[in-house]
Design a protein around this nucleic acid. Structure first.
Lengths: 224, 224
DNA sequence: ACAAAAGTGTTTTCTATACACCCATGG
DNA sequence: CCATGGGTGTATAGAAAACACTTTTGT
């Protein structure tokens, strides 16, 4: 049996900054879909693992290096690529946009952050992939803590609150939220304050790595 | 770039009968791992979707047709197959063993149900795949109802209770469990009884398809 | 009558939710 | 002194958990 299916990886990278969730997209330099936006990705090399492939492609096409990536889903519709049969393993990542300078190279003509409610039309079946990724992101916050990968190392509590508000798409009770999060014991309160121009300066917190990842593994039932 | 990665699908099929969870395995007819046990699977054909491929392979190798299959994870370690680079998309299925006659054919020399705590050593990285599948099965019951695919159409309530006890690996409170499940409104009580030799005969129930799948889609938070 | 499995309610405890005022700073 | 965002406690309602006896059948 001669099989000639190609294998690619794609990465949906989410970033969070000042109250909005964005996705990193590239503008394709070559056909098919030349000039159209797409999520970053490319073919897997023969001797690299899938994770190595996503990380390499992300680096090549956008300049970012990411430390949180998880497998999302594998898309194998025979017609998803007009050229030939391409099966794509999609990944899902979270970063702080401020931590990296994005720049286009290789297959990308341009790289840009798009707010998730202001997305352009996309190449291939990337809209479907993105839709699934967004659903997963929203689902995640109900069973594990989120934030470590998206916030600065030191942050005022309101940043975390705003992140959750944004992800949930609705207001949350500040007092109950604080109670809940603090009871999880994943934050360490620092002896530092930060002022945002006006108002009372906020205490800074940082995630306690160890307890954060422990809780993430165990899983929580998280009702906000 | 000339890529020669092969793509396969594998299916972990779980069955439940009289208090034990089993997995369907095949004994390999050819090298590599000839004579060793493995989960069913095989290469994806060029013009079929991944789902079509799993269903075909399952039918060919074991004789079963399954109506509940979901994608589990894609395994892409470069060394997972000794012959060449093979990336495998693993699926996860549930059936009632009683509903099908299993029989070996094509690549399988033998097909057999194995209790999940009495597994033989497996080919390739199939132990890893199975481990993940078991974890997923256990995780599933916390956020959606389980049972429709695993139990007979008519069953006494104690069957469902035993299924949960088995999946959770611990005892549960019968009264609270019954209250919880009945309040979900996914069961219809029948006007039939069944006796198991001794003891009071049990009322039979069946799943209400519509409400079961509706709830499955919505998701539940399920604490037993 | 007894062994074996089915069926059934109430109380207690915990957790989620709703809700409003004071505090610290900058201008 | 006022505008702005930060920080805090209590009361109520609802859900989960703990818990034991009665019923129906076969032998």
């Amino acid at each position: 049996m001669q099989q000639s299916i190609k294998l690619s990886v794609d990465a949906v990278v989410f970033g969070y900054e000042s109250g909005t969730i964005s996705v990193l997209l590239i503008k394709r330099k070559y056909e098919p879909f030349k000039g159209k936006w797409a999520i970053a990705g490319g073919f897997v090399l023969e001797d690299e693992s899938l994770e190595e492939a996503v990380e390499r492609e992300l680096k090549e096409e956008t300049g970012i290096e990411i430390n949180y990536l998880e497998q999302l889903y594998t898309f194998g519709n025979p017609k998803r690529d007009p050229r030939c049969r391409v099966v794509s393993v999609a990944y899902f990542g979270l970063i702080k946009p401020s931590a990296f300078k994005i720049f286009a190279s290789t297959d990308a003509e341009e790289v840009q952050w798009f707010k998730i409610n202001e997305l352009p039309s996309l190449s291939f079946d990337h809209e479907e992939i993105l839709k699934l990724a967004i659903a997963r992101l929203q689902g995640k916050i109900t069973y594990e803590p989120i934030g470590f990968e998206l916030l600065d190392t030191k942050f005022p509590f309101s940043d975390l609150e705003k992140l959750y508000t944004t992800l949930l798409g609705r207001a949350i009770d500040r007092r109950n939220f604080r109670k809940k999060i603090l009871s999880l014991n994943i934050l360490d309160e620092l002896d530092e304050k930060v002022s945002k121009g006006s108002g009372r300066p906020a205490n800074l917190f940082k995630f306690n790595r160890e307890r954060y990842f422990k809780l993430k593994k165990e899983g929580i039932i998280f009702e906000i």
